[in-house]
């Protein structure tokens, strides 16, 4: 599933990032590497999300949220 399908408050494990090369690398540099646990803090109907990754918060647009493959860890 993609990050967009996760529910608010869920912890997810990043499995893969399927986005344009530059965006993928940028996300990795920000700490969204494979295996990282992220928490979905907030989400909007339009698809934008707020996540917590490695102790910091990021707002991501729908296009990005849909390109991050995750597994929910409860």
């Amino acid at each position: 599933m993609t990050l967009r399908e996760a529910r608010i408050g869920q912890d997810c494990r990043v499995n893969a990032i399927d986005l344009k090369h530059d965006t993928s690398r940028r996300l990795e540099m920000l700490g969204l590497t494979k295996g990282t646990i992220i928490r979905l803090l907030n989400a909007k109907k339009g698809g934008a999300v707020i996540i917590r990754v490695r102790g910091t918060r990021f707002a991501l647009g729908r296009e990005i949220a849909e390109g991050i493959e995750v597994t929910v860890r409860g």
Partner: peptide, 10 residues
Amino acid sequence: DAHTLLIELP
């Protein structure tokens, strides 16, 4: 670049 939101919330 299509506009995509990617920003840190301090």
